[in-house]
């Protein structure tokens, strides 16, 4: 073992690592990930987290670009104004209905589509690509197209609805404060069904096929398989997706901004579009930020509630 050959080899083989040995591998293991992460951290920190803090601080200031001399800290004044602002309460209620109906339809239609796509049929690949296409359409285009479709003079939908006896005459749905919200909601459903379908389809495909075979051997009907296997398997996925999507839709102002601008008479104004119009049209950043903070608080309460509910249900 102390043979000459071995020793000479040892000497030839001056370990290149020697010089680096000072730097501990441990240190390297701790620091290296941050090398890869730092651009992301810097970007998110500078462009999202810091503005977030500034945004919250704006809600306690008066910052109106159109009124530059009226600038400074105002305490809770914006919030007090908010409390007395009828438009805020209308927008809050509209946010609720907008989110609720959008989610309800997106989810149920999405689940139906996912179940269909989980079966075999001729031309499935092409079909899937085509039904998912709305997801890729830029939002402003969907908004413009649907606004067109709802137009009473040149759009087909009012005429068809009249022909079906749902409307008495082809009038402007989006000009009617009671119905206007349905314009953006329908556009949103159109845009959002693929998202749910894709998510649910992925979940469906992750259910092991043997489970269904076992259930079939045990004599379960198709409906029983669905309620006893499919739904319980999908439930956690559904819960988390619906929660995240609810928040996303509540924040989603593009469609409404383009289709109705919040009108008529604020009947389609939701909180996020109210934030945008206040910031963009009135350039009143203080008040816009106060609305945004209120929206954030509401969403936070909602998220905590859903998580609490989930925990409670999971325990049982």
């Amino acid at each position: 073992m102390e043979g000459k050959a071995v020793i000479s080899r040892k000497q030839n083989n001056v370990m290149p690592g020697e010089t680096r040995a000072r730097r501990s591998l441990y240190w390297q293991y701790m620091v290296e990930p941050f090398l890869y992460l730092s651009p992301a951290i810097v970007l998110i920190g500078l462009v999202m987290m810091i503005p977030l803090v500034i945004g919250i601080s704006y809600s306690f200031q008066s910052i109106e670009l159109l009124n530059p001399f009226n600038t400074g800290w105002v305490g809770f004044e914006n919030y007090i104004d908010l409390w007395a602002d009828r438009k805020f309460w209308i927008a809050l209620e509209n946010t609720f209905w907008w989110t609720f109906w959008s989610i309800a339809f997106q989810f149920s239609l999405g689940l139906g589509l996912a179940l269909l796509l989980n079966t075999d049929f001729f031309g499935k690949k092409l079909f899937q690509a085509l039904v998912f296409l709305p997801w890729a359409v830029p939002t402003f285009l969907s908004a413009l197209t649907w606004a067109w479709l709802f137009n009473p003079v040149i759009g087909p939908l009012p005429h068809w609805l009249t022909a079906l006896g749902i409307l008495s005459e082809p009038y402007n749905i989006m000009g009617d404060p009671d119905l206007a919200m349905w314009g953006p909601i329908v556009a949103n459903i159109w845009f959002g069904v693929p998202f749910f379908a894709i998510t649910l389809l992925a979940a469906l495909q992750s259910i092991p096929g043997e489970l269904y075979e076992a259930a079939e051997i045990d004599g379960a009907s198709a409906w029983q398989s669905f309620t006893k296997i499919t739904l319980p398997f999908l439930a956690p996925m559904i819960a988390i997706t619906v929660m995240l999507r609810t928040i996303w839709i509540a924040n989603f102002a593009d469609l409404i901004f383009v289709m109705t601008g919040g009108g008529p008479a604020n009947s389609t104004q939701i909180l996020s579009s109210y934030v945008f119009t206040t910031a963009f049209r009135k350039l009143d950043f203080g008040y816009a930020s106060a609305i945004a903070v209120a929206l954030l608080a509401i969403l936070l309460v909602y998220a905590v509630f859903v998580l609490w509910l989930r925990k409670k249900l999971v325990k049982i």
């Binding site: 293991y29 992460l37 998110i44 977030l52 924040n251 945008f276 950043f285 930020s289 969403l299």
Partner: peptide, 28 residues
């Protein structure tokens, strides 16, 4: 690494808060 969970949490949160909330600060 230390702080991994925190970072992931922060990234998830940025997916949830209203982006419009920062439109005014970003503009300024």
């Amino acid at each position: 690494f230390a702080g991994k969970r925190l970072l992931i949490a922060v990234m998830l949160i940025t997916q949830m808060f209203p982006l419009l909330m920062i439109i005014a600060p970003i503009y300024k």
